[in-house]
Design a protein around this nucleic acid. Sequence first.
DNA 1: CTGTTAGCGCGTTCAA
DNA 2: TTGAACGCGCTAACAG
Lengths: 330, 330
Amino acid sequence: MSTIRDVARVAEVSISTVSHVLNETRPVEPATRARVVAAIAETGYRRDALARALRRSRTDTIGLVVSDVGEPAFAGMIHGVEQAVGALDLGLVLASSGEGADREDRAVQTLLNRRVDGLILARAVESHDSLLSQLEREKSPTVLLDRIYPSVALDQVGVDNRSAMAELVQHLVGKGHRRLAIVAGDLRVPTLAERLAGVRDGIGRADVTVLSGVDGDALRSELDMLLRRGETTAIIASSTPLATIALDAMMAAGLRTPDDIAFATFDGFDQHPMFTPSLTTIRQPASDIGAAAVQLLYARIGDAHRKPRVERLQATLELRDSTEGYSAAN
Amino acid sequence: MSTIRDVARVAEVSISTVSHVLNETRPVEPATRARVVAAIAETGYRRDALARALRRSRTDTIGLVVSDVGEPAFAGMIHGVEQAVGALDLGLVLASSGEGADREDRAVQTLLNRRVDGLILARAVESHDSLLSQLEREKSPTVLLDRIYPSVALDQVGVDNRSAMAELVQHLVGKGHRRLAIVAGDLRVPTLAERLAGVRDGIGRADVTVLSGVDGDALRSELDMLLRRGETTAIIASSTPLATIALDAMMAAGLRTPDDIAFATFDGFDQHPMFTPSLTTIRQPASDIGAAAVQLLYARIGDAHRKPRVERLQATLELRDSTEGYSAAN
DNA sequence: CTGTTAGCGCGTTCAA
DNA sequence: TTGAACGCGCTAACAG
């Protein structure tokens, strides 16, 4: 690759002149500018973003850390982040933590070493508090994604888990359900804890069995036992993987939805109208969440002193057969 | 952030000694090393990957360009790439082209400016040949992902579209189908062209109607007409979005699978056994493909002169009700 | 075993 | 309107 010096030599000007036509950072005689432009074309020069970043101490790049690139919800958010980042003419470097606090630490260090201008972080389950304090200490612009921590003074974006879930539950109770169950998953994940809180908000005088924990197999056996008792009329799953567990258990128990039991899920599967049963689902605008995170981060990079903002995007309740086809008053 | 000089000062050694303990690049007295290590801890020093990369002319980072981060197949590949890249202790910078050749050019330039050590590229539909010649000219290590171009002398990874599709078609013909249709999509995309070729391989003396083109609406109306004639006994879709179009058309025509017509798709939807109809699907190991691309790229970075390799991973045919439940001899 | 020094490629004073 | 020169933070000769 040719450097700025090559261009300068060919154009018979100094490198600083080249730099200035490149950045439009001071007036330059049309004639000389033309020579420079020609020289750039001739040499096929492209400026070295590394050297530039080193000099300006600014990389025009942001970092994104998620626990699992593969999980559908995160995949959607990555999509949104990528879009927004591209629109702002920034670069995106991606890392994943695999839900491990140590790996998360390392991922963040790597990104900081690369001098990203800011960081979007979906914290791992047992993320170290020290990580956030470090980010704060170093004044690295940071926005938290998806998993929201009320006590943390950072920009954050997520979905309004609680009210969406409450709405769903109220709807179910309104349809006559009195004994519900929720497969709530790992309650250390704020997102999942919020969804459970939403259930409590909406449950009223009805009864709900909460199945929580990290271990999928354990959840599954609890669910098996519960279904065997046969009193539950509606099951809610708090996430896509949990929905899979629930559906497995229902099948194994010989229960079909909506005929035998109602079912709903937060963040489920891509569905086509031809598939039955169609599942009542709370869908979150994953891509928008990612995009919003970028906006927040960009604003923060621009102004380190603005007040941290917590943004909750609205999830939408999509009612389908798995709840509408079932009558609790059977 | 503190720099290597700060560490040197605190440890009372020269900066080169610090550098050498950092990189283990020459022996250093245990005592001095200890002082350096202590100084590093004390100052909270982390080395600047930018300056390091500038000096070594190597970023330990690779670039990935796909057309659409959101498309499930690509999402899976991104996942695989991220995993493999992390395992090699490299960084990943992600960009997308949105199937536009110009945007693709820009994305690649941006990555090259950032001096990525190599590039993984899922070419856009009408990708400029000039882009590849440029990459070759500049000797940028490159591997092509998913969309394979036989005439191009680069490392490439994709799936064995043709034989997988042929197997599916043979199976259908073996079950008595004589009039098939394939929603083939945009045949400028090598992947889709290969899938169509596979159909031709497997069709034998049976008959197949090919619906191709870029425009989804046009495909849809062709399909509507075809279904109205009612002679087709099996439909194949070449990708997830095409499958959606096909299912829509089938629903609109009041046709159900497997009862009224057989259906299969290359690269379909996540399916749970509870959903009916279950769809016969050719599933590609998206994550493995991404990982393989990284391996190839890493090897090429290590040795610029090795012979370009084209790797085809095996897709697997998953037979389900949408073809097995239908009897062509009805 | 350790230190001094010359750049990597660029942006940006300061002088002219 | 232009150029010379310094330094961002680091690695890698070269010297001692």
